[in-house]
Simulated assay, not measured.
Amino acid sequence: MATTMQKVFPFLIIGSGIAITAALVAMKQPPEEKPPVDTTPLVSVQSIEYKPMTFTVSSYGVVNPKYQTELVAQVNGEITYLAEAFVKGGFVKKGQILAKIDPSDYESALLDAQAELASAKSNLVLEKATAAVAEREWAEITDSKPSDLSLRKPQLAKEIAKLKSAEAGLHRAQRNLERSVIKAPYDSLIASRNIGLGTYVGNGASIGTLYNTEIAEVRLPLADKEMQYLDRKGANAEVSLVGNFAGEKQQWQGTIVRSEGVIDSKSRMTYLVAEINDPYALKGNHKELRFGTYVTAHIGGTQAGSVAIIPRHLIVNGLVAVMDTEMKLRYLPVNIIRQDGSNVIISSGLEDGMNIITSALDYPIEGMSVKLPEDKILQQDAIEGDDIIKSAIAIKDKE
């Protein structure tokens, strides 16, 4: 038969367990309250600014002389004189003597031509006198009308023709003598010289090549779609040329003077031609622009009006993501009037000062809330401030 202790012992164990459990529960601290997690997407924005703009069209080209001339000998003979400036890279003025061909034969030919002219003039005077005597004698013999032969008119015409031939011969001799002296046709840079002292040259032999230094040209290729941004298809437009000179980037000014008027069959480009005055700075103090220089050209174009520039990658199907005044995501259509490298130029669709979203969104939805990073930081600072206050209050309560 169970004793009283045996009957009570199980209840004591159970009671002890309940007491211990209650004590442990009482000692357990309540779980910390975690602040709610803000899942609003953070975005970066760029403010839209409209301002006036003048379009420019970019191109490129190589500087060349407007005129280049290959000098050739127009008479035969030996080179007896060369100017010191007549060397490759030399500069010469218009009319400056570059070389001379031995003039002896042409001086002799001129004397012969002068003698023939004098003889022809003398024969003409004599024939005129003879014709006058024949006319007078015919009148003394008969009253009938004389024939042209009787009046020596054929002989007179022959002498007149001989005189004209002699005059032509004199002009030819004078011209050949003048051609024995080779002169620069304009202010020039000597590109090459193909003769030396004592060289015998024949009619048509190459003497050298000259480049005109008064005006330089640059052919500028443009895609057909770029022509719409130029006034009057670029006629008389100002051009800024950028290139390197002496290891430094330099800039020169030019003017579009003409279009070549056709589309190149290979490149499908239209070529405009720009002119630059005094490229070698022979008459001014600007930097020289040497022939053969590769330049980038910026051609002044039409007035675009009030426009804004935004990165091209932000436009998808003609829509731009913006953050409205209520911090909501909106997609707005824009009117693109030109692409300019990595940017596009728009004329309407967005308001001045509006914020466009420049950062990528994982799952964008029209009307969703968005935040700026600075707003997130301010919110976090506020939460941390609240936590500090709560901790201070809890500590004070324990005390």
Rank of each mutant, 00 (worst) to 15 (best):
I393L: 11
Q6N: 09
S119N: 08
S108P: 09
I346W: 01
V62S: 08
I389K: 15
S192N: 14
E116P: 03
E167P: 12
R172C: 00
N355E: 02
K94Y: 02
Y200P: 14
Q46P: 00
E84A: 14
Q46A: 05
A281C: 02
G367A: 05
G300V: 12
T199F: 02
P31Q: 09
P364K: 03
E351S: 05
V133W: 10
P35Q: 15
K128W: 03
N277H: 12
G254Q: 07
S342T: 14
S180N: 07
I79H: 05
D352P: 02
N76I: 14
G353N: 03
W138G: 00
V92D: 00
M5G: 07
Y60K: 11
E399P: 02
N203K: 15
P10K: 08
L24S: 04
K162P: 04
V92R: 13
E351V: 08
K94R: 12
I182Y: 10
I97L: 14
K158R: 14
G292F: 08
D224T: 14
Q114A: 05
L197S: 09
P31Y: 01
N76C: 12
N123L: 06
I20A: 12
K51N: 06
A237E: 11
E116W: 03
V218H: 07
N244Q: 13
K153P: 00
L289G: 01
A237M: 08
S16R: 11
I182T: 12
K164I: 08
K7H: 06
I48F: 00
L378A: 14
Q303S: 13
I357N: 00
D362R: 13
I256H: 03
E326G: 09
K100H: 08
A132V: 13
G234D: 06
R290I: 10
K396Q: 09
L189P: 06
G61A: 06
A321L: 00
I48A: 00
S369G: 07
A120N: 00
F291G: 06
K249Y: 03
S206R: 14
L361W: 04
L24A: 05
G89Y: 05
G169D: 06
F55T: 03
A131Q: 06
A2R: 13
T3C: 07
Q155L: 05
S306K: 12
N335M: 03
P41K: 04
L177V: 14
S59D: 02
L111E: 15
Q29N: 13
T270P: 06
L210T: 03
Y50F: 09
N76V: 15
D352W: 01
L156F: 06
N285E: 11
M323V: 02
A392F: 09
L272M: 10
T293Y: 09
Y229H: 11
P154Q: 01
G17Y: 05
T21W: 15
